[in-house]
Design a protein around this nucleic acid. Structure first.
Lengths: 252, 252
DNA sequence: CAGCGTCTGTGCGCTAAGGCACTCATTGCC
DNA sequence: GGCAATGAGTGCCTTAGCGCACAGACGCTG
């Protein structure tokens, strides 16, 4: 319960609470490390904990028997894992896998349930976020069906970049292939082209984003649509740049 | 406000309310006819009305620029259109199109909002249903991505059959193609095979289900998964057979 | 430094589905 | 009865992505 050392990167949903509410809530939270490929919940099973990511980020994936996984959404410090608790459900609708290692606030199911009853504001924020997830989910569904690999890959890299708060992060072709529901070698080819064009570079899983703008041009419109949807409901989340700016302002 | 003439087929979500609550709610409702291909709401726009289908049913679809629509879910008398109101949102996340003509209870947004505040039971039911939709949505997403046309078509016919409360209903190949996000001629071929095998028969849009069991064998597991998900959260919805049985019991 | 596991590159044949473009049949309407 | 609209059947060529398989490349560990 290390409330004293609030990490640099904050969780945007928590930022939307009053500072009093936030402090109460954080008393029930622990800061934990999210390890790459950790599985945080399984479909139709009770959540063990809920997570408000700070620097780490989490994939929501659906699996069908006999197929690769397919990624339905990405949760970074703009969101939370376990938002269906706002529906009174303590079971998870999908599997959640850590995609980007880092830190998160973690809270017990029962604690959050109890706090939800006392804090209509949090209830409201979670409901809004759930609505956004719903919209993004249907967007991703159509995207996976109609759009081709390269635009989808670019979209995914951008979404990861946003949540990694760094232009270097760990993601193997195999992992990306699972997220996108395609062959690993398909990703290798598409990523290879992007590397040739100097949009990204990578080696043994470490990906560097070299040219964000170029990636945005390649990505399908679903990337922007996801941002817009979030923005229109929940407002502007803090970006890496915002944080730097805040720091600079407080230095002199 | 024709509360007096409650239609034969009831809405399962409303059945889960106390009869007192249900009667209060229905005072705010009108019975309306849903006409084939009517559009009931558009994404990111305010709902005009919310609907509890009785004999008609409604498709939720996502559209991406430059592509066919893609169907995300089907709402019959086991559900409702506009469940995101339980999140306090009065805008629709997707487009809704009438797929099967028939009747529905219709209610004004403001009326339902107000009633929701007075009736925690309804709030709870809608939240549960929303959870089910979320799970079904991710299932459909993966299904559309991985499964082939024939199983998906069979699934869709079964889902429609369940909600049409009749083994004959109107659905053109073109409409099905739009739902499944594929070419019309692809549907013609797949449906043609099913017709040859005597699973279904059709002519100029009127489809007859001849052999449900055979369709279930062809359909992907997503059909059953959808049923199971609903069942596990909200219990057994009334089927056509249940209703017949109820009638027979009350006759002697 | 040898060895193994992980990550990436590449190639080949295959197939479901797409795009496009007709024809044909049924139905309703003027 | 003739005409237009809608629904359905068919064919042909193209293509993105799959399954499978193997080879190189890097990096950790003993």
């Amino acid at each position: 319960m290390s409330v004293s050392t609030v990490p640099l990167i904050t969780n945007h949903l928590l930022q939307l609470l009053s500072s009093k509410d936030r402090h109460i809530l954080l008393q029930y939270c622990d800061v934990v490390q999210l390890q790459f490929a950790d599985i945080l919940c399984e479909p139709n099973q009770r959540y063990r904990y809920l997570y408000f990511p700070l620097s780490g980020f989490i994939s929501l994936v659906t699996k069908l028997a006999g197929h690769k996984p397919l990624e339905m959404g990405l949760i970074g410090n703009e969101g939370m894992l376990g938002v269906t608790l706002a529906l009174g459900m303590t079971t998870a609708p999908m599997q959640a896998v850590v995609q980007g290692k880092g830190t998160a606030w973690r809270i017990d199911v029962a604690d959050l349930q109890q706090f939800l009853l006392l804090c209509p504001q949090l209830q409201h924020v979670l409901q809004q976020y759930l609505f956004v997830q719903l919209a993004q989910l249907s967007q991703s569904a159509a995207c996976a069906h109609f759009h081709e690999l390269s635009p989808r890959l670019a979209r995914w890299l951008l979404m990861s970049h946003d949540r990694a708060h760094s232009s270097r992060f760990y993601l193997t072709h195999q992992f990306l292939a699972d997220m996108l529901g395609v062959r690993r070698s398909g990703v290798t080819v598409a990523a290879g082209i992007m590397q040739q064009q100097q949009f990204i570079s990578y080696s043994r899983g470490m990906i560097s984003i070299l040219d964000r703008q170029a990636l945005q041009n390649v990505a399908c419109e679903c990337y922007q649509a996801g941002l817009d949807e979030y923005l229109s409901v929940l407002g502007q989340p803090r970006t890496e740049d915002d944080i730097k700016q805040l720091l600079q302002q407080s230095v002199p």
